[in-house]
Nucleic acid binder design. Structure first.
Lengths: 204, 204
DNA sequence: CGTATGCTCAAACGATCGTTTGAATCCCTC
DNA sequence: GAGGGATTCAAACGATCGTTTGAGCATACG
């Protein structure tokens, strides 16, 4: 039972863990509040409903994640010397760094679940709040791959998305021993992902 | 409400659809039996429990799918002129053909869900019953990519798996108008997937 | 000190869950 | 057409779900 932080933060932390492990339906508010060490009614008091809690779990991480992604993209987008690998780095690295924050790796798993669930409400929420991020990256990929038709470009970005989501949802669960090897591990992972994605996007 | 076929088949069909749409937890036996046009108790009578029903939903499709995959692999594995694309074709084409069977495209979505759920029981079931298929494909990929280390090979196969699962779970939902354009669409899709995956596996 | 205000608490709400029961019905065999 | 195993049925089981309630507690301000 977690006893650090405010009630809201404890609920969000426990929700992230349990949603990752058992899914949005599978994790009950009783398991959740029990793990957070708060009263059952606290969820509805602080968040209004379970569905709103799910949205806040996403918001807490995605606001920061996508701000970092857009900031990293802005540094390379439109520049003359920019390579495909630089844009992919702007997309991937913030997510990998998040995976090594406290609970961050579990959040990537929650995100992977949200992709697999074809729930309309959740997709609409994610699209409305964070769709512009994917749109900006798509535009830059298109600029760097002018020989691809629009259809082909969308296909490949979708495939890259699937590969990265799948890979990152399983990444970072096993904790490294020291901070040095953790950074090395993250760097190695980033290289694996970027090399694969760049080659796939660049396929003849 | 479906009224064709035996009770068992109607349950399996409705289960596939509802599991794809609402997940294993989200789809209740009452919704399921109501959609199948059978009595609520029929699930426990014919399958024993909801969990056993889930396993049978997988078994019904995966037995045929993986047999086709292994048969296609056997035709090219170890041959002198075999290319990466041939092995990927053996893996992808049977799944795409399944997607155009009745309800098949929904099954790919169920499979994508099973990947996202990190449920231990389900993973154990899939690994025990169908792990040998991935092992054979991995061996052949390793043969065709001798310059990759074991670690790199596993990374890339994992990324390919994620990309294909993600892409195929959204494929085939929209029905094509005539059989000719459906076959053309499938062929085009196969080419997209194979080109991307081959380039990714082959990355420097 | 009195009283708002924000929060926590145990308890209960009705709804829905997977499963079980025992009787009714179907269908094949003798 | 009588007997019997296979199947279907309505009904109920206890458990658990998300949510609501109203009393109780804390802290801060006049």
């Amino acid at each position: 039972m977690n006893r650090t932080g405010s009630t809201k933060e404890r609920i969000l932390g426990a929700a992230e863990t349990l949603f990752a492990q058992r899914g949005f339906d599978g994790a009950s508010l009783r398991q959740l509040t029990s793990a957070a060490g708060v009263n059952l009614a606290a969820v509805n008091y602080h968040f209004g409903s379970k569905e709103k809690l799910v949205e806040q779990v996403f918001r807490r991480r995605l606001d920061a994640l996508n701000a970092q992604r857009l900031a990293a993209l802005a540094k390379v987008a439109g520049q003359p010397g920019t390579r495909l690998e630089d844009v992919l780095d702007a997309f991937i690295r913030p997510a990998l760094e998040l995976s090594h924050e406290d609970g961050g790796s579990l959040f990537m798993r929650v995100l992977a679940r949200a992709f697999a669930e074809h729930d309309d409400g959740l997709r609409k929420f994610l699209s409305e709040n964070y769709g512009h991020v994917m749109r900006q990256f798509t535009a830059e990929f298109g600029r760097l791959l002018p020989r691809l038709s629009k259809e082909e470009l969308y296909w490949r970005i979708d495939l890259v998305t699937g590969a990265l989501t799948h890979a990152m949802s399983g990444f970072g669960i096993i904790q490294r021993k020291s901070d040095v090897s953790e950074r090395a591990h993250r760097e190695q992972t980033a290289q694996h992902l970027i090399r694969f994605a760049a080659a796939g996007l660049n396929a003849t």
